[in-house]
């Protein structure tokens, strides 16, 4: 069990299924540490102002320079420790499979689609694929320069999530100002993701944690017929699946448990199992 669930899950099993994480309380009380970290105005309106893409990139580029130091031999270790600390108190996330994403949408009060900040910065285009929850949409409306958002009903939001899953995007639930407060579900393409790359390239774990599940192949069902099939290999954004001895094999060290490989499988041979019961993956988060 990962540290967030141990601390915040209570009787709900997973931290992001605890309804407390969806209350507006967290915007009211921020510690001094949080305020320094986000240069945090108490007013939430200003919180959205700092996330305006026109002003924000300078601090993003500074953060990226800091993240970059994690590759250095000695300073790197310190940067990793600090990075992990900041990620817990700041804005970071955990991968969730589609089923859990549905549950999160049901728990939240209102949903709105925001343009993906990472794609905006690293590809120069707006794609509406970040699903933000209460109170984000209200504050976006009040934003002085008017964030363009698309408000959705719960059913529409689920429909959108299914659409994103078909495209192969990884769902990740993100917190803001501390771990149990759910703010959005990002639908990431890790190729240009600002959270996933520090994890994958620099091993800053808390920036993008693995999900509560891990994928497993049923060797009896998998045909491993490569020219015809092999969808799971191409759908995995983390390079965790390889075809070995004519069957798909999942590397538990690399698997993030997003479950995207399942939707490509024609034989329905891949399923998600609880990470806590997996012999190797239970220690990897």
């Amino acid at each position: 069990m990962c540290e967030f669930c141990r601390k915040h899950a209570e009787e709900y099993g997973k931290w992001y299924l605890n309804p407390k994480g969806y209350s507006e309380e967290f915007f009211r009380k921020l510690s001094i540490f949080d305020r320094i970290l986000h240069r945090q105005p108490r007013k939430v309106r200003e919180l959205w102002e700092v996330s305006d893409a026109a002003w924000y990139p300078l601090s993003i580029s500074k953060t990226l320079d800091l993240v970059d130091l994690a590759a250095k031999p000695f300073i790197g270790r310190i940067i990793k420790i600090i990075g992990n600390m900041i990620a817990v108190r700041g804005h970071a996330g955990q991968v969730v499979p589609l089923e859990d994403a549905y549950k999160i949408v049901e728990l939240s009060e209102s949903q709105a689609l925001f343009p993906c900040m990472c794609k905006r910065l690293f590809k120069g285009e707006d794609e509406y694929k970040c699903l933000n929850f209460t109170p984000a949409p209200e504050f976006a409306e009040k934003h002085p320069r008017g964030w363009r958002v698309k408000e959705l009903e719960t059913e529409e939001a689920k429909e959108k999530l299914r659409e994103f899953a078909e495209k192969g995007y990884v769902h990740a639930v993100f917190w803001w100002c501390g771990a149990p407060q759910v703010i959005c579900i990002c639908n990431c393409d890790t190729k240009y993701c600002y959270a996933a790359r520090p994890r994958l390239w620099y091993d800053i774990k808390n920036a993008y944690r693995k999900s509560e599940y891990v994928a497993e192949v049923d060797p009896d069902k998998c045909s491993g017929d490569i020219p015809r099939c092999g969808n799971c290999v191409s759908r995995c954004q983390f390079g965790a699946i390889k075809i070995r001895d004519g069957k798909a094999a999942i590397d538990p060290y690399k698997c993030f448990g997003c479950g995207q490989c399942r939707f490509g499988c024609e034989e329905d041979a891949i399923r998600l199992v609880d990470r806590n019961t997996h012999p190797i993956a239970q220690r990897l988060w």
């Binding site: 990139p57 990226l64 910065l121 690293f122 590809k123 240009y192």
Partner: peptide
């Protein structure tokens, strides 16, 4: 192809 480039003000 690796999205290494970014713009900043």
């Amino acid at each position: 192809p690796k999205s290494l480039l970014m713009f900043r003000p």
